[in-house]
């Protein structure tokens, strides 16, 4: 892995950080899906910055959440067309994150709803929100309080560009789990 990539990964992984602002800016896992957006708003990824990012990392980062072999590493829930029904295959993932939130009362999660590009932007924003709320409600049932979760929506704004095909649409219809504060 080259240094540049390492640096961007660290920036992306900077989740629980020293200041609220830094934590917020770096906590969008949507960035995972679109590398062009990965550095937006994050601190400059110069050599010096990386060193301090690593230091911050150790104070706020959860080993559980960042273990690639853990189910908690999975952060996306996909939906059928025009639906906010959560398919059974995502139950274990949602339950694992709910359990994590219950075990870490200081942790803060953002559920980010998304839609495909068809239809009006503002209406799609509301449809994405409905998907985020559907995921949140499952977590509520499992005992997680709203104080630990924020539901937001990107609507169609993060949908794949120029791909008017179901193969893209199915990836666009999702809720991403992002941690603003990991622990």
């Amino acid at each position: 892995m080259n240094k540049q990539l390492m640096a961007s990964l660290l920036v992306v992984l900077l989740l629980g950080a020293c200041s609220n602002k830094a934590a917020k800016d770096a906590s969008a896992p949507v960035a995972d899906k679109s590398p062009a957006m990965a550095d937006t708003g994050a601190p400059a990824a110069g050599g010096d910055t990386v060193a301090s990012v690593v230091a911050d990392d150790e104070s706020g980062k959860s080993a559980l959440l960042n273990d690639p072999s853990s189910i908690l590493y999975k952060r996306s829930i996909y939906f059928d067309y025009d639906s906010e029904t959560i398919n059974a295959e995502y139950r274990p993932l949602i339950e694992a994150h709910a359990k994590y939130l219950l075990a870490h009362p200081n942790a803060r999660m953002v559920l980010q709803g998304n839609t495909d590009e068809r239809g009006a932007r503002e209406y799609n924003l509301s449809l994405g929100q409905r998907r985020a709320v559907a995921v949140k409600r499952v977590m509520n049932v499992l005992g997680v309080q709203d104080t630990q979760i924020e539901t937001v929506s990107f609507g169609e704004e993060k949908a794949k560009l120029g791909c008017a095909a179901e193969s893209c649409y199915k990836d666009d219809r999702r809720v991403d789990i992002a941690y603003q504060v990991e622990k």
């Binding site: 503002e122 709320v133 949140k136 924020e150 539901t151 937001v152 929506s153």
Partner: peptide, 9 residues
Amino acid sequence: IVLSHSANS
């Protein structure tokens, strides 16, 4: 304006 708080728009 439209707000969602923790629910629908």
